[in-house]
Amino acid sequence: MSRRAFIRWLLAIGAALVGLSAFFSQKVKNKFMQANQPAVSSIKPEPAQPVAQTTTEPLPTGPLMSYFILSDLHVSVGDPSTGKKLRQALDDIKQFDGPVDAIMLTGDLTDTGTERDYKELRTIVSEYKLPPVHANMGNHDYYTIWINKANSWDQAAVPNGKSDQMSREQFKKFFGYSQVYNDFTTKGHSILLLSQEAYVQEKPEVGEGAWYSDEQLAWFKERVQSLYQPGRPLFVMTHQPLPPNGADGGSHQLIRAIKFREILKPYKNVFVFCGHRHQDFQNGTPHYVQETFHFFHNASVGRTLNRAYQQEAKMKTQGIYVQVFADKVVVRGREFSNRTFLDEANWSIDLQKAQV
């Protein structure tokens, strides 16, 4: 073998040994790595569960909804002071330093229910740009049967060619309603307005009381169930007040009171407002009663009375301002004649939270 051939043979042998060494080195490396890697499980991991996060976000500080309740306007052509007082109330509301999402008129809108008194009411209201206005009927809104063609009180000639049906139709026409009881919702909060459905021309036994039909009470039950939202307030407007708990009422009261209370009993955070008593917020008469619901007696815009039901403070004209917050409802008495809130009528009611 020549020297050159011998050198080529040595190089070939070296290259083969290097390759073989690399091959065994890779095999050892793979074996080592496999031995040190964790075994791959055949069990699929559980999906990650959401973690409940606590929030420190504060409740809204401003009112969610606010409205005024004006009771017993008694607007009358024969008593100009009633129109003057309604204008005082509406002037205050128009310039009020706070939100007003609606106005509720809870009965005795006029003094006699006659066409001329409704015309006077329309004249006054049309002078103002107001938020939505809703109403129910009081006993005086049926009084047209006492009034003769000369617009004088004529008890001997009752019903003076009139009827309770005519009074209902006049009220519905004024507000554009299809029935005398209605509900209104704004900003997610609802108000139900119940109305006296008959007076002494049709039902002499009711006197000055509020009689509700089976149909109205069935409607009321369905609407409460439909509109109620746990944790939020629900508002109900009547005209006549309730009798003592456990009894039905008579003249000057809500007559079918046992059924009324039964409908509301399952629900929390219900607020009921009535008028009819005219009682001054500042005469010491209780205006708030807590039952299974919160029950408030409003004063009067047209004729505020003292404890003896006398119109002693002839200049007073009062109503209620309601504010709904996330965790409470604030109810405040308002004196419209001097545009002030009354310390004697200031309630803050905490809302019961919805059960999760």
Rank of each mutant, 00 (worst) to 15 (best):
A102R: 00
E202G: 06
T114L: 07
F184M: 01
V236K: 07
R122G: 12
G207N: 08
T123I: 13
E208M: 09
Q225D: 10
V224W: 00
E115I: 14
A198H: 10
K119G: 14
Q165H: 14
S126G: 04
K173E: 05
P131L: 10
Q229V: 13
V133I: 14
T238W: 00
T112E: 06
V224H: 07
P233Q: 01
N148A: 06
N151L: 13
V180F: 06
E120V: 12
A210Q: 15
D154L: 04
T114F: 00
Q216M: 08
R232Q: 06
F175Y: 05
W153E: 11
R168Q: 09
K149C: 03
L192C: 03
G231I: 02
V224M: 09
Y181A: 10
Y199V: 15
W146K: 13
V200N: 07
P99G: 05
G98Y: 04
L130C: 10
W146H: 13
E202L: 07
P233H: 01
K119W: 14
E208V: 08
L194A: 09
L227M: 03
Y181G: 08
K203C: 11
F184S: 11
P233M: 02
E205D: 11
K149I: 06
L192H: 03
I103W: 01
Y212V: 12
D164Y: 05
T112S: 09
V200W: 07
E127D: 00
T186G: 05
S226E: 14
T186E: 07
Y199K: 15
D111E: 02
G188T: 02
I145K: 15
M137N: 12
G207I: 05
E197L: 07
D183H: 06
G138H: 01
W219A: 04
Q95M: 12
I145A: 15
Q225F: 14
P131F: 03
Y228G: 12
Q225M: 13
D164S: 10
